[in-house]
Design a protein around this nucleic acid. Structure first.
Lengths: 101, 101
DNA sequence: TAAATATATCATGATTTGATGATATGTCAA
DNA sequence: TTGACATATCATCAAATCATGATATATTTA
């Protein structure tokens, strides 16, 4: 595959997505959804800790960036991964971590 | 490969690196160094445009994050990619772009 | 040494981000 | 309808980021 220069608009989108992932707590959310599958907000809160309002805002940013999906079920809202690209990045990190880099 | 929960300190490092890549101009720098190989600052400036001071500061951030290397040769400073992880992310984006996602 | 080129740094202000605590909204069950 | 639970939003403030223009440093050449 020959790499061509990425279009400006696309680069803007992607840099936005990377910036959203550039936060330890949000990365932790993505990791959790990947390892344990979809989960409601209160479960994420119980496992990851922190303030409820903060979690909600982080989830909102991930949703706006298209990294996760949200679906209300009764009084819960279930979150799940929506962007394969985010997973690719996460797995890239896992590999580096495994190599001790 | 079984994915284990990433250590906190590592997650902090990685989120920092992602945040550094989360800027269109800096992504453009990384892309340029990948496509055309190492280059001195003034060449990057000529091709990418913008203010010289801004370029210098973006290069500094990329260097601090370990994404690029710098080496002085005479009055020039040559920059080159230093982080395979950054390339993996870039290639991941190229693939998505190619798929029109 | 002086000028020219290449790069780095600094000061400033505007904008964004992040954390916190409080409050509002939505949903279900008693 | 009231209360409990789950989630979202708001207000505020501190800190980080970003763009800009000016200035400083380093290196080579005249």
């Amino acid at each position: 595959m020959k790499a061509r220069i990425l279009p400006h608009e696309f680069l803007e989108q992607m840099s936005g997505a990377l910036r959203v992932l550039g936060h330890a707590y949000r990365l932790r959310i993505v990791e959790h959804l990947d390892l344990r599958g979809p989960a409601p907000g209160h479960q994420l809160l119980a496992e990851l800790g922190g303030a409820q309002g903060a979690l909600s805002q982080h989830l909102a940013r991930l949703r706006q960036a298209g990294v996760i999906q949200a679906e209300r079920r009764g009084k819960e809202v279930w979150y799940s991964l929506a962007a394969p690209a985010a997973l690719t990045i996460l797995n890239c990190m896992r590999k580096r971590q495994g190599e001790g880099k």
